[in-house]
Amino acid sequence: MNRIEVKNLRFSYRRGEEILKGMDLTFDSESTAIIGQNGAGKTTFVKLLKGLLKPTEGDIFIKGKNTTEVTVAKLAKEIGMVFQNPNDQIFKSKVIDEVMFGPLNIGQGMEEAKGNSLKALELMELSDKVDENPYDLSLSERKLITIASILAMDTDIVIFDEPTISQDYFGKIRIKNIVKELAARGKLVITIAHDMDFVAEISERVIVLNKGEVILDGSAEEVFLRDDILKSAYLEQPNITQLCKRLGYDRTFLALKEFLDYRLAEN
């Protein structure tokens, strides 16, 4: 089972400034989005899951292993994470070598690593860029390379921190499909995102963080229904949800098609 258990998690960088104020959560194989304004503690939380930070209080178990008892490098076999800024990781002069770096580190053989990397690059539609220097490509392409570099590690748990930054419509579609496919393959996917339309489309579950606390946790429909609570955390409903709410519908529509189907049935 791909399970993350978070028990009474508290964290502070400095004494007296608590960033996370007691969280109890369980994640299973599903696609979860974490939303909240900057400073709510989202990135801190996923860094804790990744073992990059250690809890000040409480415990995190990744597939039964306590994050305080294994090194980050060891944990990398179980849990992959795509960071916000691709320039923080890219150092190889060829796209393929960059993508193979992680797989080789966690013990995949040369052939296996290469196969996984080529497959991941194909998913990101970067097959024609395999031998190019990543720094000759655009920022949005570099971001897709970093996503490929994590996919190639084939971990059971994948975390995305703001995957859609600087992506256009096609890039977003690609990332959307990746998240859905990973979830369909039984992986545990956690995505931090600001784009509510994107969140509505990719997530089975949505968690709202505000000032280090979970203020909402439920299905996307349940969470986006509570626009009063969302507003208090400076968040908005997806565009289609806003329109339908104003039109007086008492249920949450998360996608255009959903709304059109409902109207058709209504008439």
Binding site: Y169, D197, N239, I240, L243, L256, L260
Partner: peptide, 18 residues
């Protein structure tokens, strides 16, 4: 429009469908 990597606003798409 989609060929150019742009999706019309959801408000336009709703009204167009209806």
């Amino acid at each position: 429009l989609l060929n150019y990597g742009v999706q019309a606003p959801v408000f336009t798409r709703v009204c167009r469908s209806l």
